[in-house]
């Protein structure tokens, strides 16, 4: 009897633990859906409507004007692109730039799709947990999120600026070498073959 008892007891405990995993998961899910989704839906709708009302032509015109110097190109343009066009359409703004600057702009823009999430989650809702995952811990402690969200955005802007500069420099350094290789290919196939 004792053995039977302990077996049923063990099985029951296992069942409780087993289902407990999913109960905890379910509670987390409800917390996420009621905590993040309503705000996200309303914000997404508002921004989608704003973008449609402004119209793509006008956004394009501002973008085109924002290609002139490095500050506009690697801070303002990525911000506008990610805010208005969101991930992944933001990278289409690269078409306003000369070829040599396109990799740097891509690097800059793609590095901003997460730092923007703290304040404007509409820009990349599919990857919100890069930020929201860590932010959830702060919320659990009962601390306010504003400080983290603002600092994430500001540091993000500094970082995309540095990324733009570094990648532009690397691209420039690699460019002539590639161009020469191209000439070599056109001139003599054997030299290119050796490389």
């Amino acid at each position: 009897m004792d053995i039977v008892n302990s077996i049923t007891h063990g099985a029951a405990e296992f069942a409780t633990n087993f289902i407990g995993v999913f109960q905890t998961g379910g509670k987390t899910f409800v917390g996420l859906v009621t905590g993040i989704v309503p705000l996200l839906i309303v914000l997404l709708t508002a921004v989608n409507a704003l973008v449609r009302l402004i119209g793509p032509e006008r956004i394009d015109r501002v973008a085109q004007a924002s290609t002139r110097n490095i500050f506009l190109r690697y801070i303002v343009l990525p911000f506008l692109a990610v805010f208005f066009l969101t991930n992944p359409m933001a990278y289409t703004m690269g078409r306003f730039l000369p070829e040599k600057q396109k990799p740097a702009f891509y690097d800059s823009a793609v590095s901003f799709v997460h730092p923007i999430l703290g304040l404007f989650p509409h820009a990349n809702p599919g990857e919100i947990f890069v930020y929201a995952g860590i932010a959830a811990g702060i919320t659990t402690l009962g601390l306010p999120l504003g400080d983290l969200a603002v600092r994430y955005l500001v540091v993000g802007l500094v970082v995309i600026f540095i990324r733009g500069l570094v990648t532009e420099a690397i691209t420039r350094a690699m460019w002539p070498a590639e161009a020469k290789a191209e000439v070599a290919v056109a001139g003599a196939g054997t030299t290119a073959g050796e490389e």
Partner: peptide, 25 residues
Amino acid sequence: IPVGLALGEAEPQTTEIGVPAVLMS
């Protein structure tokens, strides 16, 4: 990187240089 650059209407040569440039950066 290749898709992102293609969205920005980059030439194939730009993509060739751009991929290692971003990765090294």
